[in-house]
């Protein structure tokens, strides 16, 4: 992941970043970042996602502000799907950020 901000999945320009840090604004709102919550290895909840890219029992790919979040596991199911967040449960082995 690039830190310079040239990439389209980056977290915004240097000025916006400094401003957000100065004003202590919530970054997920300012930079449109996903919030990933993990309950052990059995439930991963992604808030502020863009869309579901792929879903099967082994892989769940979710596109978000930073790129694609790939979850790898066994017998994964989509526990909840709403416009704001998506909850995946099962036995999760890996959480990867793909760009």
């Amino acid at each position: 992941m690039s830190l310079a901000g040239k990439d389209k999945h980056s977290s915004g320009s240097g000025f916006r970043r400094r401003l957000a840090e100065m004003l202590e604004l919530p970054k997920e709102v300012v930079f449109n970042l996903p919030v990933i919550q993990a309950l052990g290895n059995e439930e991963i909840s992604v808030t502020n996602y863009k869309g579901l890219v792929e879903y099967n029992e082994q892989y769940v790919r979710i596109s978000a502000g930073t790129g694609i979040i790939q979850l790898e596991g066994v017998r994964l199911i989509l526990r909840q799907v709403t416009a704001e967040h998506i909850t995946v449960s099962g036995r999760v082995k890996k959480i990867e950020f793909l760009n």
């Binding site: 869309g51 792929e54 879903y55 199911i77 989509l78 526990r79 909840q80 799907v81 709403t82």
Partner: peptide, 21 residues
């Protein structure tokens, strides 16, 4: 593409749960 279907449904704020492949 069942994924596309889910995305469309989520966009229209249809609440879906317990999706199993």
């Amino acid at each position: 593409s069942a994924e596309r279907f889910i995305n469309l449904a989520a966009r229209r704020s249809i609440y879906l749960w317990d999706a199993v492949r």
